Simulated assay, not measured.
Amino acid sequence: MGDVLAGFQTVWEFDTDSVLIRFERGIRTPKLLQTLGERRVPFEALSAVELAPGKRGTVVLRAVPRPGADPLMDVADGQLKEAYDPYRLVLPAERETLAEYYAEEIRAALAPDADTPAETHLVTAPAPPMSFKAYDGKASFDGKEVAFRWFWTGASSAKWKVGDQRFRVDELSGVEWCSPESKGSAGSTPKEGAAKNGNGHLRLIERAHEDRPMGRADHDPAAVVFGMGYGMVHQSLPFAAAVLEAVRAGNPGQGAEGAPASAAHTAAHPAARRDPADIAERIRHLGELHIQGLLTDEEFSAKKAELLAEL
């Protein structure tokens, strides 16, 4: 098409087989859209396009992604507010005729199997490395491995018992994201297992345990929980989408020499020395758990030895 359709905070630039959706930077543009910046969406990634009246003299043109085509929308699982939806274009009502023209152009370009789920991701997720602070720990992803490092101020004793966690992409089968802006709590639907001290979480689904019932996220070492100001949508959702894209890509978990990816990464990037003050604080916290009877003598000694070995 080669045309440009500009709306409020969003611009669609049409190509012969795709649309480039660009999000303007500014105080009125939601942070999630500013974080995404722009997204190239092939027409084959869409199942439909809709046009409907908006609020206060506007019309809304919305492209509907096929299930499985966009890792960001898959992991969001219908939890995004309208303003955060990257597939919405809000236009003045007087441009409704023009919007209908482009809607028909997109419909004519849809793939023959547009009404079926996509077999592979067709829209690219934000690229790693990425990290964000949750309520009970820091999550980081380098493209091959997800790491959770617990905060002593927020992590439960269950997480402190098992220590910081690392998960190779090839050990995972999926990602569960519960919006930090949800109203849910522990045991609620549709996202069960949310933590009592946060409204959402990011949970990694391990292949070895995917049939295991999911407990509370604040007790699950494969999850980080969100709280006020921690794990915000514009930080945690792109992170979750990047991990899901890597999982779906079928990472074989092999390094350059055929060794497991985690071993190759360790050889190429030896673990950095930890801050002694941080180690001392962690040992102090473990001692408190030991005194409270939450850690046995053996567990306390083992975890203390692990921390001292990092110095």
Rank of each mutant, 00 (worst) to 15 (best):
G193Y: 04
G193F: 07
G193L: 01
K196W: 12
N197D: 14
N197Y: 14
N199F: 11
G200S: 03
H201G: 02
E206S: 12
E206C: 10
A208L: 09
H209Q: 14
H209C: 12
E210V: 14
E210S: 15
R212T: 15
P213E: 05
R216S: 08
A217D: 00
D220I: 06
A222H: 12
A222E: 06
A223S: 08
V224Q: 02
V225I: 13
F226E: 03
G227Q: 00
G229V: 07
Y230D: 11
Y230G: 08
G231I: 11
M232L: 13
F239S: 07
F239N: 03
F239W: 07
A240G: 00
A240I: 02
A241Y: 01
A242N: 06
V243Y: 01
V243S: 03
V243I: 05
L244E: 03
E245T: 04
A246Y: 01
V247D: 01
V247P: 06
R248L: 09
R248H: 13
R248M: 09
R248V: 08
A249R: 15
A249H: 15
G250M: 08
N251I: 10
N251S: 15
P252K: 11
P252T: 09
G253V: 05
Q254A: 12
G255K: 03
G255M: 00
E257C: 08
G258H: 02
A259N: 10
P260R: 05
P260E: 00
S262N: 12
S262F: 09
S262L: 11
